[in-house]
């Protein structure tokens, strides 16, 4: 078993008075695809956004307990939020390319991080686009607007944009919820290929997707973790009745 790179201990999160995460305890291991499933409002996205501290943008957000990334308490003093967000690249539910060219979208994060020189950026962009299987489709129009790409291509572009930052983690928040089955398949394939290099955390409201790609899966309900286990176990013999009901489609 490989080492745990994310560790939550009694982690709680609040938006103002409302508690959105209750006593989360879990470990995510290096180079695994960790699936998070659960109905809407169960706190799965909030947990993801707690990991790169994107919740900080919302006024009234606060946390208790510990949340560690590679042994470092990310809510402790001395954490560089900017650096943290570069280490945990995030892909959102709706692809949000910036209103710029394809090239600039991929180069954006790297530029912000201080990568300079046209040659290095060129190489980085090409490399990132190849890893997401987008290179062949866009190599002859890198300077056209990213907003002209199809939904699936945009989502892979957002993934490429993360890869250009050379992160340690890739976090995806329902990345295929707006995509057709073929685009979804391409994204899932890409994720499996990326697994050797990255730790991947995949939040999905499509339980079958977790069954297809995740090594281990956590089931969130009302801000709590009901169950964490190997994906086969969760989907074949869950130990909690509620998990069983959810994956059978009885609610959610």
């Amino acid at each position: 078993m490989s080492e745990a790179v994310v560790r939550a201990e009694n982690f709680r999160h609040f938006f103002g008075e409302r508690q959105t995460l209750r006593r989360i305890n879990l470990e995510i291991r290096r180079n695994e695809i960790f699936g998070i499933i659960g109905p809407a409002g169960s706190g799965k996205s909030t947990f993801l956004r707690a990991l790169n501290r994107l919740n900080d943008l919302v006024p009234g957000s606060r946390t208790e307990g510990t949340l560690e990334v590679c042994g470092q308490d990310i809510y402790g003093p001395g954490t560089s939020v900017v650096e943290l967000r570069r280490r945990l690249g995030m892909v959102f539910a709706t692809p949000i390319p910036l209103p710029r060219s394809i090239f600039e979208n991929v180069a954006f994060g790297a530029r912000m991080a201080g990568v300079k020189g046209r040659a290095r950026l060129n190489e980085l962009v090409a490399d990132s686009l190849r890893k997401t299987a987008l290179w062949e489709e866009v190599m002859d129009r890198l300077d056209s607007s990213a907003l002209k790409l199809s939904g699936g291509q945009q989502q892979r572009l957002c993934l490429a944009r993360i890869l250009a930052l050379k992160p340690e983690f890739i976090m995806l928040d329902e990345p295929t919820s707006g995509l057709d089955p073929i685009s979804t398949m391409k994204i899932e394939e890409t994720l499996r290929q990326l697994q050797s290099e990255f730790t991947i955390i995949l939040v999905t409201n499509n339980t079958k997707q977790a069954a297809r790609v995740a090594d281990r899966t956590a089931f969130f309900l009302n801000g709590e973790i009901v169950e964490v286990d190997r994906t086969e176990k969760i989907f074949s013999a869950p130990s909690d009745q509620r998990t069983n009901d959810y994956i059978l489609g009885k609610f959610g």
Partner: peptide, 20 residues
């Protein structure tokens, strides 16, 4: 979403303002 996307990429607030 533009602002969030940019900040999630590790851009600072000022970089986000200027570039996005």
């Amino acid at each position: 979403t533009y602002r969030e996307g940019s900040i999630a990429l590790g851009a600072t607030r000022w970089q986000t303002t200027r570039m996005v």
